[in-house]
Nucleic acid binder design. Sequence first.
DNA 1: TCAAGTATACTTGTATACAAGTATAATAAC
DNA 2: GTTATTATACTTGTATACAAGTATACTTGA
Lengths: 243, 243
Amino acid sequence: MSESRDFLYPEKWLSKASAGDRVAYELRMQIISGMIESGTILSENKLAADFSVSRSPVREALKILASENIIRLERMGAVVIGLSEKEIEEIYDVRLLIETFVFERLARMETSELVKELSKILEMMKVAIKYCDADEFSFQDVLFHETIIRAVNHSYILMIWNNLKPVMESFILLSMRGRFKDKYDDFTRIINNHELYIEAIRTKDRNLMIKSLHQNFDDVQGKVEDLWRSQQMLSKGGVQEND
Amino acid sequence: MSESRDFLYPEKWLSKASAGDRVAYELRMQIISGMIESGTILSENKLAADFSVSRSPVREALKILASENIIRLERMGAVVIGLSEKEIEEIYDVRLLIETFVFERLARMETSELVKELSKILEMMKVAIKYCDADEFSFQDVLFHETIIRAVNHSYILMIWNNLKPVMESFILLSMRGRFKDKYDDFTRIINNHELYIEAIRTKDRNLMIKSLHQNFDDVQGKVEDLWRSQQMLSKGGVQEND
DNA sequence: TCAAGTATACTTGTATACAAGTATAATAAC
DNA sequence: GTTATTATACTTGTATACAAGTATACTTGA
């Protein structure tokens, strides 16, 4: 296949990565981009040949991708699941779940340091836009949310994030690369939303946070209704001291 | 070390497991039980020798345990994290998060089949109690919650569960084994709580579900306050249609 | 032409070998 | 005695080899 680029995943992000990680990152990009179609059966030997490595790192990569739910390990071969609309919605459900959880914790913490950190990342994002660097922009975007999540110091919430992150990162990366071509003005909206998010954290305004979070999802995907449905789910999560 | 049993994890649950899985299951039990102390540095070679397998399955096991957050892979050796009070609270946070999410979905579904399934599992639990089979009881207990989660067909929520499950299972297993010795009457309470849970699903009574879920956590751990704190977190998760 | 059995070319899982890197300990220089 | 350097015994990551199992295709028999 004569692709314009040899690797979909930014090579400079792989400087210290092992061969297994490299295979995982690249394979993930190929799956999420649709370059490898859902339903395809992957063979360890074939992948090893394609990537010019032995089966060991390939096995490692397949285990990782299986834990991320984008492939399914079966008796014979690994079946590609990929990211359909359903999966993307589900990822948003989970992001909404954990970021809402995190926000509740933040509301009881000193957040001035975090706000400063986030502002810095936002500046970086602006620079990335200025120089049309989609990859850098995506990196900072993911970092923005990771920084918020890390701030509450919750190892099992972080565990969920770590499981979700690679898929999200790949998805955002592909999405942003597309937008830098034809929807350049989207980015001012994205920046505004992130500013809203920071403001929500600063003032501990829960509603503002939910709003900006939803708009952020919106920015990546362009769908609204389902997200607000999830949000309604959470809003019904109250219990009126029935004890 | 002259333990009364050679393996902590029930061997009959490992009938189709690979050597890597076996090492993971057993190592996890040893870590969670405290037999291997937090801070211990595990060596691949030493573990391979201890378990009489090669490094390949050991590496696999360490990767699994690292993704479950009970060890941390570093440059030289794997450092045991284990389950302190903090981690247990965090696991409960996550369970509360996902089971609440799941319940909201269930509230909009036909649940008669699920209720029937859960009733069956509950019967099994009763039999396990009758015959003092702590392992079987734990198995059914975990299955009970997994059945509920699977019912909503949400692959990314299931992904979180799959990551959490082994640690939970081990923890419950150890906890229940202890109770069958000295706190036998705890089990009638546990059964009651599960009946409450089923009733909550049947009648789609959210408050009842939250109540029984908390009592269930309570049953495993014996702590209340922190759980109700988490619950309060969720209850403040509402948004008043600010759009 | 069709059924049954066998052969073959796959598959996974595990063991082992090796290369490259890192910490510890022992030795040498001062 | 202290510091610097070398040697050694670890470590991880990757490649390769092999055993056991499974699906496909082919052959053999009717």
